[in-house]
């Protein structure tokens, strides 16, 4: 029973709209698992079903070996949830947000107070304990929400876009805390449309698009399977990049034309760059980089992750 999530043919419909279209997912204990996909891919709907606040329309779903339809409260008692939009209690202080939330789980007041202090320490908010929530920065609020999700010592933490809307510094702080949790053996399930986030945190992930799963594996596996070792990004100073694509034909394994640049998928970026110059094409800029999950997504769906 070390499958914390078992979904088979899972479907979620809202009226005529199918948000999740028959997905199979398995998450094992101790794993950091990610749903990567653009907005509207069905990630949040999936997360809400896993969090037992949204009943599935069809398919099989088992969380912690239990049926969410029947055992919602029992399952939720063992989960931690960090929603996409902060829903902290603005009428309470930072500390009270944790102690009050702990009471919802039936945790005794004394234990709640002790745990709140430990968690505030953990998310580096101890000195703001008596502040109201409102004046906190976005990053602080998100860290408080994460602390709140840990107040019941959950077996699995669900994080819906944990760093969306945060500045880079705040994101790194959140990542670092999440990484610490992962090291402590807490199972993490997160959604993201940032490929760097997925690469940093996830042991394994699924790429979601249009309610379906397009691919599954570890970040490295996915990159190896769906992309080349290196990518050359060429920007041409012209209205359209299209005409250059023809002249680049035969260079590398694959080529993607985006509105503002051409991506060349190759094994050796420098060699490809030299070839571009031999063909006397004059790109305004050239960037050689390693393949990322962004390229995997582009290859699988023909679209970029963040538009």
């Amino acid at each position: 029973m070390d499958k914390l999530i078992h979904a088979h043919g899972l479907i979620k419909r809202f009226g005529d709209f199918t948000a999740v279209d028959g997905i199979d997912v398995e998450v094992r204990r101790g794993e950091a698992f990610g749903f990567l996909g653009p907005n509207g891919a069905g990630k949040s709907s999936t997360m809400r079903m896993i969090g037992c606040v949204s009943p599935p329309t069809g398919g099989v779903l088992k969380i912690l070996g239990l049926d969410p339809r029947r055992d919602g409260p029992k399952i939720r008692a063992r989960l931690g949830v960090c929603p996409q939009l902060d829903n902290l209690d603005i009428e309470l202080t930072v500390r009270e947000n944790l102690t009050t939330y702990a009471r919802f789980f039936g945790i005794p007041r004394k234990v709640a107070r002790r745990r709140a202090d430990e968690l505030l320490e953990f998310v580096q908010l101890a000195e703001r304990a008596d502040s109201k929530v409102e004046p906190l920065s976005g990053g602080m609020k998100r860290r408080l929400t994460i602390a709140r999700a840990l107040v019941n010592e959950p077996e699995m933490v669900l994080l819906d876009e944990p760093t969306t809307g945060l500045d880079p510094q705040a994101r790194h702080l959140v990542w670092e805390r999440l990484f610490r949790l992962k090291q402590q053996g807490v199972t993490l399930v997160l959604t993201t449309h940032y490929m760097d986030e997925a690469e940093q945190l996830c042991d394994r992930l699924v790429v979601m698009d249009g309610g379906r799963i397009a691919a599954e594996g570890s970040p490295r596996e996915l990159i190896e399977r769906y992309s080349t070792r290196e990518v050359v990004e060429l920007r041409f100073a012209a209205e359209s990049q299209e005409p250059y694509a023809e002249k680049l034909a035969g260079l590398g394994e694959r080529l993607e034309v985006l509105p503002d640049r051409v991506l060349l998928y190759v094994d050796d970026g420098d060699e490809a760059t030299a070839e571009v110059q031999r063909r006397s094409l004059m790109p305004a800029s050239v960037l050689v980089r390693r393949s990322s999950l962004e390229d995997v997504f582009l290859h699988l769906t023909g679209r970029t992750l963040v538009d």
Partner: peptide
């Protein structure tokens, strides 16, 4: 507006 109940419903509360 406070979306208070969304937070509560992520706990065992119904």
């Amino acid at each position: 507006f406070m979306r208070l109940y969304e937070g509560m419903l992520a706990t065992p509360i119904r």
